[in-house]
């Protein structure tokens, strides 16, 4: 089981908003595939999958805000 964690994005950046999931729960993903896009200020950034496997659970939907260090999803 691998957790997809929102990494450090810069000084003073504590959260970001989910803008797009490239995959849906239940789908197979490969390590390094773009998994989810988030936005902060006028920057949109892609988060790659940390592992290959099934995208088991998505914890934050598009439009929701995630804190740095929080898990966005689980890969099994």
């Amino acid at each position: 089981m691998a957790k997809v964690i929102l990494p450090e994005l810069g000084e003073g950046i504590t959260k970001a908003t989910v803008s797009y999931w490239y995959f849906q729960a239940g789908q197979e993903v490969k390590e390094k595939d773009d998994l989810v896009e988030l936005t902060t200020d006028k920057a949109a950034f892609n988060l790659p999958s940390p592992a290959s496997g099934k995208l088991k659970k998505i914890f934050f939907l598009e439009g929701q805000s995630v804190k740095v260090g929080e898990a966005l999803a689980e890969i099994e």
């Binding site: 810069g10 000084e11 902060t40 200020d41 950034f45």
Partner: peptide, 9 residues
């Protein structure tokens, strides 16, 4: 450079 999205903006 710097891994910092806001500093880049």
């Amino acid at each position: 450079w710097k891994r910092d999205l806001h500093k880049f903006l």
